[in-house]
C-alpha cells in the first residue's frame, strides 16, 4: 500500500474513485437484507396465495404430493433441538467462562483461546461426521438400552449434543468477553467488604454482566437454530412431532437442505422450501436484533 503513495496518481482522482466505490459497497450492504427478504417473499408467494400463514404454522400435515404444507412438525423439531442444545451448553459455557476469567492460570486461558479458535473453525460437516461416528452409536448401543429404550441413534438427543458442542466456542468466547469487561474496582469493593471470591462472582460479576450473558446465550440459540448440515446428518429426519429425546426429528434447515432434489418436480414445493427459509431468516433476524440491543445497552453503561 505504500506503493500507492509513490504512484503519481492524482490524489483527488483516487479519492473520488475510492469514495464512489465505497458508497456503492455500503449501499449494497444496506440493501442486502432487504433484497434477501424480498427475494424469499416473492418466491414463497405462490404458496402464500394458497394457504394462510396461520394454518401453515399450525398444521402438522406435510404431504407435498397432495399440496398440504404444514410446518408445525418442523418448527417443533427446530425448537426442541435448539432448546436441548441450549440446556446442554449454556451451563457448561457459563461455568467455564467464569473459571477461565476469574480463577484459571494464564497459560490455561491462553490455550483455551486456541481451543475456541479451532472449535469455531471446524466445519459443520466435520461435526456431523463425528456425530455419526461417535454420538449415534453411543446412544443406540449404550445409553438407550441402559434406560430400557430402543432408538436408532439418529434422534433429537444426538442433534442436541452435536449442536451443543458447536455452540460452545461462540457462547464461551462472548461470555468471557462479558466477564472481563466487569470493572475490577467493583470486584475489589466487594472483596474488601469481606465477601469470598465466589460470593463476589455470584453477587457482583454475574449481576453486572447480566445483559451481556443474555446476549451471549441468545447468540448461541440463534447459531443453533440455523445450523444445517451437522444436524441433518444425525437427527433422523422424520416429519413428526418428536415425543421424546430418543425420537427422530426434522428441523427446518434440514427440510430445506434435504428436499433440494425433488422440489422442482412437485408443484409449490420450491415455494414451500423458500417459505421455510423465510421463516428462519425472520426468526433469526429478530433474535440477533435482541442480542444487538442488549450489547448496545452494555456499551451505554
Amino acid at each position: 500500500m505504500a506503493a500507492l503513495q509513490r504512484l503519481i496518481l492524482p490524489a483527488k482522482l483516487t479519492d473520488r474513485l475510492s469514495t464512489g466505490w465505497l458508497n456503492f459497497a455500503v449501499l449494497f450492504l444496506i440493501l442486502l437484507p432487504l433484497v434477501i427478504g424480498a427475494g424469499l417473499v416473492i418466491k414463497s408467494l405462490p404458496l402464500l396465495e394458497q394457504a394462510s400463514i396461520g394454518t401453515m404454522l399450525h398444521s402438522a400435515e406435510f404431504s407435498p404430493q397432495q399440496g398440504h404444507f404444514g410446518f408445525y412438525a418442523f418448527i417443533m423439531g427446530s425448537v426442541w433441538v435448539t432448546l436441548l442444545s441450549f440446556v446442554l451448553s449454556a451451563p457448561v459455557c457459563l461455568l467455564a467462562a467464569i473459571y477461565l476469567t476469574e480463577y484459571s492460570p494464564q497459560w490455561l486461558t491462553q490455550s483455551m483461546y486456541f481451543v475456541i479458535d479451532v472449535l469455531a473453525g471446524i466445519p459443520s460437516v466435520v461435526y456431523g461426521v463425528w456425530g455419526v461416528l461417535v454420538i449415534v452409536p453411543l446412544l443406540a448401543d449404550y445409553v438407550a438400552p441402559a434406560l430400557g429404550l430402543t432408538t436408532t441413534g439418529y434422534c433429537l438427543l444426538s442433534g442436541g449434543i452435536v449442536l451443543a458442542i458447536m455452540a460452545v466456542p461462540y457462547m464461551l468466547n462472548m461470555l468471557m468477553e462479558v466477564f472481563r469487561s466487569v470493572p475490577i474496582e467493583l470486584k475489589e469493593a466487594s472483596l474488601s467488604l469481606g465477601a469470598t471470591y465466589w460470593e463476589t462472582i455470584k453477587w457482583v460479576v454475574l449481576k453486572k454482566g447480566l445483559t451481556g450473558i443474555i446476549a451471549a446465550l441468545s447468540l448461541g440459540i440463534s447459531k443453533a437454530l440455523g445450523e444445517t448440515i451437522a444436524v441433518l446428518m444425525v437427527v433422523g429426519n422424520v416429519a413428526k412431532v418428536p415425543k421424546s429425546v430418543f425420537d427422530a426429528a426434522y428441523p427446518l434447515p434440514a427440510l430445506i437442505a434435504n428436499n433440494y432434489g425433488d422440489m422442482m418436480s412437485v408443484p409449490l414445493y420450491d415455494s414451500a422450501l423458500m417459505f421455510a427459509a423465510l421463516l428462519l431468516f425472520v426468526i433469526i433476524l429478530v433474535f440477533n436484533s435482541i442480542t444487538s440491543f442488549f450489547l448496545y445497552r452494555i456499551k451505554e453503561q
Binding site: 442486502l32 437454530l225 440455523g226 430445506i256 437442505a257 428462519l280 433469526i284
Partner: peptide, 18 residues
Amino acid sequence: RFLLNALWGVPSIVFGAF
C-alpha cells in the same frame, strides 16, 4: 454495525436458498 451483526447470524442455508 447493527446490520452487520444481524447479517452475521443469518444461517448459511438461508443464503443458499436466496
